[in-house]
Nucleic acid binder design. Structure first.
Length: 572
RNA sequence: GCGGAUGUAGUGAAGGGGUUAUCACCUGAGGUUUCCAACCUCAUGUCACGGGUUCAAAUCCCGUCGUCCGCACCA
């Protein structure tokens, strides 16, 4: 076993032992890909999610929403997830490799995605498709592999097929009309949502990296594609981001976000801006800057909805792992839901600078002829006539109606008509830039980067260097000994600190003082207050800094304030 | 799904047809200790589940479930 793997195992043992992250349902045998967050981990994740939420809410034009995890099938059909996730798999009976059936028939069918399982099996058999692995043509029947968890809403006959959401984004698209009203029709604006997402992985591996139920935090930022947003890139002018471009466009390069946007390495400035803000977030919660890179998706790995996508990848024990996807989704989703539902509220209004007087000539059906000729179809014919481009067709011509029927239009059935309209603006589909964060993956890398195995007095010593802002416990309260009133004073300090909202302390009185410092260091408690005899006489206590063990003496009454306003470091 | 490995206290490991299943660390209580995993005494807690063989199964056999590693899959 490599040293890296050995370190990984020691880290995971520690996380289990100390109640940070544990395999779920262990007494029932456990389930791969599902984890519990214990007393330390639960708090850590809460702090991380809060940090994420505050990071985006501080922008001022972004709001928080929350939508259901159970999602009706039709939503996910419209979004493309049902099609994308309902892949058929064929297995080679010779070498037991499994492949996507539609990939196997790609050369024999123009649109393999549209085929059902029987068609796929037929083509594979008739064309004697050979196994890419072993070259033999001996296939099992294909089976659907749905990566979404399905369920029903309601019972029995009245039930409706649904899935556990594979992403939170669709919920935010459903809320677009409410968001649009909330912001009184002014783009750009955004919405964030953090919550659970589900994916029924065939075989989850790599611990926290591939989960079946995971915490995601997504932001949908709605923009007018025709309006240039003047992003301020100056905060990052001194930073060089590690950008791995699609090889088609160029070599990996180091650039500030401003340079990358100007040079069109990042194609949309809003995408560049979100990449920069993502970098801010990751570094603020303790991800090491030199272990972050942005990698552009290559054309063939782009998700079905994305038109340009950059992943923030973080390097850790499993190599470079995608932790954030920043995608320019265009108007894909709003358009898809508009088409699926016919709902007209998924658009935004764009006023023209000047009202436009549109003067045009259109083909108009002559009612006295259209009516008797087409009878019940007459309405559809008139409708279709207004939609054709030309005003001077050659007669007679075939006209296709909305219901698919075709009719023949003679010259005497139509006449040219001049109409004049004043248009003050237009309804358009906003575009969306979506940064999507994998909270669990980020959390894992925070732990991975913070986990420091050092030596102390010839013994192994581990410290978790968590950022103060996300440390699950703010301070440990330790009586030097549990006697002579030191213990009761320490208990009261502990309760005092816990009574302050958003401050968490823990009391530890067992074992030598050094052991208790070690216990606190191992789970990343940044501060340790020690109550000693001097505390009894003058109400002061020592406070120890985790990362260097240095101590200063402060008034007990000041401790809560010093920790909550993060000003302690200035006293050292 | 396939192949291989595997399942023993909170963690990490040893062992094994026989009556109290072992070790270290950890945890708890007491003692000691005036600031960095000290020491002493004591204590809690374990053989994945189900069936079979047997006088006796944690051990052997069968099955199930789970986990890990490869293959494949991974918007």
């Amino acid at each position: 076993m490599s040293e890296g793997q050995a370190r990984l195992e020691r880290l995971m043992s520690m996380l289990r032992r100390r109640g940070v992250i544990l395999p779920a349902f262990q007494i029932h045998g456990g389930v791969a890909g599902l984890f519990d967050f214990g007393p330390i981990g639960g708090r850590l994740r809460r702090r991380l999610k809060n940090a994420w939420l505050n990071h985006w809410l501080s922008e001022g034009d972004i709001v928080e929403v929350d939508s259901p995890t159970i999602t009706p099938e039709s939503v996910l059909i419209a979004s493309g997830h049902v099609g994308e996730f309902n892949d058929y798999m064929s297995e080679c009976n010779n070498c037991n490799s499994a492949f996507r059936s539609d990939h196997l028939v790609e050369e024999h069918h123009p649109n393999p995605d549209s085929l059902n399982s029987a068609d796929l099996d037929n083509i594979i058999t008739e064309r004697a498709v050979v196994c890419p692995g072993c070259g033999v043509s001996d296939w099992s029947n294909c089976r659907p592999m749905n990566l979404m968890f399905s369920t029903q809403i309601g019972a029995m006959k009245g039930s409706r097929l649904a899935y556990m959401r594979p992403e939170t984004a669709q919920g935010m698209f459903m809320l677009f009309p409410a968001l649009y009203r909330h912001f009184r029709g002014r783009l750009p604006f955004g919405a964030v949502q953090s919550g659970k997402g589900y994916r029924n992985e065939i075989s989850p591996r790599q611990g926290m990296i591939r989960l079946r139920e995971f915490n995601m935090a997504e932001l949908e930022y709605f923009i007018d594609p025709d309006v240039h947003i003047p992003h301020d890139f100056s905060p990052w002018d001194g930073e060089k981001f590690h950008l791995v471009q699609d090889p088609e466009f160029g070599e990996p390069i180091s650039m500030s976000p401003r340079e990358a946007a100007d040079a069109n390495v990042i194609r949309h400035p809003t995408v560049a801006w979100f990449m920069a803000r993502t970098w801010d977030f990751l570094t603020s919660v303790g991800i090491k800057p030199d272990k972050i890179r942005f990698r552009q998706h290559e054309g063939d790995e782009m998700a079905h909805y994305a038109s340009d996508c950059w992943d923030a990848e973080i390097e850790g024990s499993y190599g470079w792992i995608e932790c954030v996807g920043i995608a320019h989704r265009g108007c894909y989703d709003l358009n898809a839901h508009e088409v699926a539902t016919g709902d007209s509220n998924l658009r935004a209004w764009r006023s023209y600078d000047e009202p436009r007087i549109v003067d045009k000539t259109i083909l108009s059906g002559v009612g006295s002829i259209i009516g008797p000729t087409f009878k019940s179809q007459a309405g559809l014919v008139n409708q279709a006539l207004t939609e054709i481009d030309t005003t001077s067709p050659t007669f007679p011509f075939e006209l296709t109606l909305a219901d698919g029927a075709t009719v023949t239009i003679e010259e005497d059935m139509v006449e040219n008509k001049r109409v004049q309209n004043t248009e003050h603006g237009e309804w358009f589909l906003p575009h969306v830039v979506e940064p999507a964060f994998g909270i669990d993956r980020i959390l894992w890398h925070i732990l991975d980067h913070a986990y420091d195995e050092t030596e102390k007095g010839g013994e192994k010593y581990t410290v978790l260097h968590l950022a103060n802002s996300i440390a699950p416990i703010d301070v440990a309260i330790l009586p030097l000994m549990e006697k002579e009133g030191l213990d009761s004073l320490a208990e009261s300090v502990h309760r005092l600190i816990c009574s302050v909202p958003n401050l968490v302390s823990y009391y530890d009185g067992s074992g030598s003082i050094g052991r208790r410092y070690a216990r606190a260091d191992e789970v990343g408690v940044p501060w340790a207050v020690t109550i000693d005899h001097e505390s009894l006489s003058n109400s002061t206590a020592t406070i120890r800094r985790r990362d260097d063990g240095k101590q200063i003496r402060v008034s007990i009454a000041d401790i809560a304030k010093l920790i909550s306003d993060n000003s302690l470091n200035q006293l050292f």
